[in-house]
Amino acid sequence: MNRIEKIVKMIRKEEPEVLLRTEEEGQFPVLRVERDRVVPVLRLLRDDFGFESLMCETASDRGDRIDLIYHLFSTPHRETLVVKTVLSREKPQVETAEDVWKSANWYEREIFDLFGVEFIGHSDLVRILLPQDWVGHPLRKDYRPAPEYHGMKIEY
């Protein structure tokens, strides 16, 4: 039994009601977790499987939904694991992973800024890259900027 199967078995034992699926065809093993249980699963992965850093947290607009993608890494095992969850496009909401890894704080602010995903329980959820009075979330596929910003015409 390889490690990813072990991880899945363990999570099934700890969190029996979690719906998850694994995909193996890509570069790394992918764990698909439902939105409500993603943070407990992440915490379990950190505590029991040694994934001590969150390399990257990002989102992707897939047209009908928003995918949230976590890339975890474990230095002692030299192992990468991808955790994915699906959010609705109209009202994307998910619990924050800030308590699990500190680096998630800024990643989540960036995702909030560029995709408009709301992280429940985040300590400081404000725009990070764009100005505070900016309108819209640019990395969404249907984004159209406001006609002007403080008197400057936005040509896009």
Binding site: Y143, M152, E155, Y156
Partner: peptide, 13 residues
């Protein structure tokens, strides 16, 4: 020039 956040030329301001 096609970016949403870049001013197209500083001579605009």
């Amino acid at each position: 020039v096609h970016s949403y956040s870049v001013l197209n030329g500083v001579d605009k301001i």
